[in-house]
Simulated assay, not measured.
Amino acid sequence: MTAERATPDFGDDTSTRRRILSATTEVLARSGQTKLSLSDVAMQAGVSRPTLYRWFASKEELLDAFGAYEQHMFDSGLSTATAGLRGNEKLDAALRFIVQFQQSYSGVRVIDIEPEVVIAQLTRVIPVMRTRLERLLQGPNRSVKAATATRVAVSHYIVRADDDDAFLAQLRHAVGIKAPARD
């Protein structure tokens, strides 16, 4: 592994690595993981195949890096959305971020192309999401609330709806908070 590939660079929008990972999102949304072509990713990113291979030696390596990239994008967005907040304000900001992320995320279309691949990946994602939500909750039922909110989010991911307000209301109900007066 080269030094360039050993150091993930998610922060620089102009980096070749980030362009390739961003292009992977678009190609996955069109083709799915099974039919993902490195040539298509290179073309979408505006790089040559040798350049792509300099960063990612194989399709598996690209998909592994893409998973880390997606996780980083979610985590950094969540951190930004909840920065400086506490208690229910922080929890509500996290729920609003989940709705916004899912509704704007182009990868959502992959469920329509390869549902079996996405459902298999959910076995990894659900426990992570549940644990993160549970950290924002208090009380004896926090694990049940986090699990319920996670299932609501996954349901909206699988069967996408265009009503962001209803999605957010369902998440708030699942964790037992009311909408702030400003909503």
Score class of each variant (00 low, 15 high):
S155N: 13
E60Q: 13
L171H: 05
T51L: 00
V108T: 11
E4F: 07
F167D: 04
S106L: 12
M73A: 14
M43A: 15
G32V: 01
D112M: 09
R54W: 00
V110R: 11
S143L: 08
E89L: 12
G46H: 01
I111F: 12
L28S: 03
A166K: 08
Q138K: 09
Q121W: 11
I119M: 11
A83L: 12
E114T: 04
E114M: 03
Q100D: 15
G107H: 09
G107R: 10
S143D: 10
S37D: 02
L95P: 11
D9K: 09
L63D: 07
M73R: 09
I177L: 05
A120G: 15
Q170I: 00
I177V: 09
L28V: 05
V125W: 15
T131V: 06
G87L: 07
L122A: 04
L136I: 10
K145L: 05
E116A: 12
Q103E: 13
T123I: 07
V128D: 14
K178D: 14
R124G: 13
G84N: 12
F56Y: 14
H173Q: 12
S37I: 02
D64A: 14
T150S: 11
R19N: 03
R130S: 12
S15W: 03
T131R: 13
I119Y: 09
V41F: 00
I111A: 02
V175L: 00
R54A: 01
A179V: 10
T148F: 03
A93K: 06
H173E: 14
D165M: 06
V128Q: 15
K35F: 07
A181S: 13
K35W: 07
G77R: 10
V144M: 06
Q138E: 15
I177R: 03
F56T: 00
I126V: 15
E116I: 12
S39K: 12
E4K: 11
N141S: 09
G84H: 10
E26G: 01
E26D: 15
G11C: 06
D163E: 07
V108D: 04
G84C: 11
T82C: 13
R124W: 09
S106V: 08
R19P: 00
S39G: 13
I98L: 12
M43D: 15
T150Q: 03
G107P: 04
A169Q: 10
I20A: 01
L122Q: 14
A57L: 07
A149Q: 05
L168P: 06
A179R: 12
N88M: 13
S22W: 03
A153P: 12
I98E: 09
T80C: 04
